[in-house]
């Protein structure tokens, strides 16, 4: 009932606007403001374009790749880049250009899944802590403080080695170790809006707790949560690469940018087969850099303190 009335009121004010001669284009929605600010940030735009190219390459890997992903051809092993094998071949004679393309799929999706996982954990815990407060808040914040102080790579290495290295364990471990920032963001936001009148109004209309949290409180936190999820995705890609480089992340024959580099742990490979580590390492760098640039651009665009 209430909602219908408000909707009607909103509608009528909108039509008032149009009566006053304002065209639809002139209405400045928050999205438009953000996009306008983001667009002005040239580095962030460059980052988005590069990231987009990398994503398209990863999606189209099966179409572009000139060879089978795992095709072993021992007669052609350890070849330097040539017109036939753009990035050369690895120690088993697999085409590295193909593997780097497929590796992008794995590395980017591990980053995406791990970051989504931490977002879910962080949002749920942050909601619980911020909405209910009291002892629930105390417990959750204690746990958060604890996880923040973890030497997380050491723990990730221990866990990965013992649970058995795999793509899924890598995603799980990274997700379970990185949710703290999201949790704090959501909790902080909730603490500041919990006492506001519109929440009280929502309660008065008999809205369920879930509805209040989901429809009325969480929308305030989405922007910072998404920004931090972007930046955590960059971290997740770095952690996955490090774990895979150490042989504790994604396992061959499935290629990831990190595990293509694994043979470079041997000095002989490092010194004599630069094509084995340079392209995947560079791609990790470029993709993490572009994600960070996009995340930073988003933060600048959404940060109300920078409003002119």
């Amino acid at each position: 009932m209430m909602r219908r009335i408000i909707a009607k009121l909103l509608k009528s004010s909108a039509s008032d606007n149009s009566l006053n001669g304002a065209k639809n284009d002139d209405i400045v929605s928050p999205g438009k403001i953000i996009w306008k600010r983001f667009r002005r940030n040239r580095i962030a735009i460059v980052g988005s374009v590069v990231l987009l190219v990398l994503i398209v390459l990863a999606i189209l890997a099966p179409v572009i790749a000139p060879y089978e992903r795992d095709a072993i051809e021992l007669a052609r092993r350890e070849q330097a880049p040539s017109s036939e094998h753009l990035f050369g071949t690895d120690r088993q004679g697999r085409d590295l250009f193909t593997r780097v393309l497929y590796g992008g799929r794995i590395s980017l999706s591990v980053g995406l899944v791990a970051s989504s996982l931490q977002m879910v954990i962080g949002v749920i815990l942050g909601c619980l802590a911020g909405y209910y407060g009291k002892w629930i808040d105390t417990i959750i914040m204690r746990i958060t403080d604890m996880v923040i102080a973890f030497p997380f790579l050491a723990l990730a290495i221990t866990a990965a080695a013992i649970l058995g290295p795999s793509i899924y364990n890598t995603m799980l471990i990274i997700g379970l170790l990185t949710w703290t920032e999201t949790c704090r963001l959501v909790r902080g936001q909730f603490l500041s809006i919990k006492q506001m009148e519109y929440i009280e109004a929502a309660k008065a209309t008999g809205a369920s707790e879930f509805r209040i949290v989901w429809r009325h409180m969480l929308p305030n936190a989405w922007a910072p949560v998404l920004i931090s999820a972007t930046l955590i995705m960059a971290t997740a890609i770095l952690v996955e690469a490090a774990l895979s480089y150490l042989g504790l992340g994604v396992q061959a024959p499935i290629p990831s940018w990190g595990n293509i580099l694994e043979p470079a742990r041997s000095m002989v490979v490092l010194m004599n087969m630069w094509w084995l580590w340079l392209p995947p390492g560079f791609l990790i760098f470029i993709s993490v850099l572009s994600i960070n640039l996009v995340g930073d651009g988003l933060r600048d665009a959404l940060d109300p303190r920078l409003k002119n």
């Binding site: 960059a234 690469a241 490090a242 480089y245 990190g258 580099l261 390492g281 993490v288």
Partner: peptide, 9 residues
């Protein structure tokens, strides 16, 4: 954004 191990290599 540089992976530590890559910089090392």
């Amino acid at each position: 954004s540089i992976p530590v191990f890559f910089l090392g290599i």
